[in-house]
Design a protein around this nucleic acid. Structure first.
Length: 288
DNA sequence: GACCCGTGGTG
DNA sequence: TCACCAAGGGT
C-alpha cells in the first residue's frame, strides 16, 4: 500500500479548518462534548451551541449537578435529543467512577453511556494524544476510495479500525494528525457527492481514481422519510416540553392538534421509555 | 446486522 | 421539489 500518512499530514498542516475543538488546550471535556454534538450533526450547526454549553457546564461534575431536563433544553434543536440525555448520564458516570475527570483509556471511555468506537477513540487520540485509529463516516469513505477503489464504503465493521490502523505512523502525535486529516479530507475534499480530486493530496495514489472513478454501488440503507414519521412527532413533543421550561404540561396540552392522535400517543410513550419524558398525574415534563 | 433515533442545509 | 447527507450509538 502506498504511503498515505505523509501527504495527509502535509496537506492538513496547510488546509485544516480552524475549528473550536482544535484550539490548543481545548480540554478533554470540551472534546467530549463536541464529539457528542457532532454525532450525526454537521459542524456548522454544532459550533454555535458548543460555547454556550461549556460556559454553562465547564466540567462533567457541573453538568451532573443539574437535572437531565437542563441538558435536554440546552441541547435545543441539535437533533437526536437522546444524545443530550446520554451526555448527561456520561457526566454522572464520570463524576461517580472517575472522580470527575474524563478518562483516558479507551475501555473506560467505551463504558460511558453514549460513547462508542468512534467517540472513545476520538477523545483518547485528540484530547489525550494517544495512538488509536479513529474512524468516522468521512474516514470510511476516504479509505474505501483510496485503498479499496470503491466509490462508497460498505457497512461499518470492526475491520474499519484495522484499515485505519494500517496507515497510522508510529509516532502518536503524527497518528493523531493522520486521523484528523483523513476526517478532514472526507469532509471538505473527498465528499460523498462530488469528490474534488483536483484538490486531493493523495489523488496520485488513490485506487478509485486510478480505476477511473467507477460507481461500485452503494450498500447503505436509505434514510426513512422524515415528514409524517414518528421521529417528527417525537421532535414536536419534545419541542413543546422544552418550551415549557421546567414546569409540567397537561398530557392533553402537548401537540393537541397533531394530525394522527395514535402517533402522538406512540411518540409520548416512546419518549417516556427512553427517559426523555416523565409522566405523573396526567402531566408530562422533561426528566428531573 | 437491521432498525431506530432529529433537524436543517443542499444540489 | 425532494432525496440525500451529516465527526454515531443503543437495542
Amino acid at each position: 500500500m502506498p504511503d498515505l500518512a505523509a501527504p495527509l499530514i502535509a496537506w492538513y498542516r496547510e488546509n485544516a479548518r480552524d475549528l473550536p475543538w482544535r484550539q490548543p488546550g481545548f480540554g478533554a471535556w470540551g472534546t467530549l462534548v463536541s464529539e457528542f454534538m457532532l454525532q450525526q450533526t454537521p459542524v456548522a450547526r454544532v459550533i454555535p451551541h458548543l460555547e454556550g454549553w461549556l460556559q454553562r457546564w465547564p466540567t462533567p461534575t457541573a453538568l451532573a449537578a443539574d437535572p437531565p431536563a437542563a441538558a435536554v433544553t440546552q441541547w435545543a434543536n441539535l437533533g437526536y435529543p437522546r444524545r443530550a440525555l446520554w451526555l448527561h448520564r456520561a457526566a454522572v458516570e464520570i463524576r461517580d467512577r472517575h472522580a470527575g475527570v474524563v478518562p483516558r483509556e479507551v475501555d473506560d471511555l467505551l463504558a460511558l453511556t453514549g460513547i462508542g468506537d468512534y467517540t472513545a477513540r476520538a477523545v483518547a487520540a485528540f484530547a489525550y494524544g494517544d495512538r488509536h485509529p479513529v474512524v468516522d463516516t468521512n474516514t470510511r469513505r476516504v479509505l474505501a476510495r483510496a485503498v479499496d477503489g470503491r466509490s462508497q464504503p460498505g457497512p461499518p465493521s470492526k475491520g474499519d479500525l484495522a484499515a485505519m490502523a494500517a496507515i497510522l505512523p508510529a509516532d502518536s502525535a503524527e497518528a493523531a494528525i493522520v486521523n484528523a486529516a483523513a476526517m478532514e479530507l472526507g469532509a471538505v475534499v473527498c465528499t460523498a457527492r462530488a469528490a474534488r480530486c483536483d484538490a486531493c493530496p493523495i489523488a496520485d495514489r488513490c485506487a478509485w481514481r486510478a480505476a477511473g472513478h467507477p460507481d461500485t454501488g452503494d450498500t447503505r440503507r436509505r434514510q426513512a422519510r422524515y415528514e409524517g414519521s414518528d421521529r417528527q412527532a417525537r421532535g414536536a413533543v419534545l419541542q413543546a416540553l422544552r418550551g415549557a421550561v421546567g414546569h409540567a404540561l397537561a398530557d392533553a396540552a402537548v401537540i393537541p392538534d397533531w394530525s394522527d392522535p395514535a402517533q402522538r400517543d406512540r411518540a409520548i410513550d416512546s419518549l417516556i421509555a427512553d427517559g426523555l419524558v416523565e409522566a405523573s398525574g396526567g402531566t408530562l415534563r422533561l426528566p428531573h
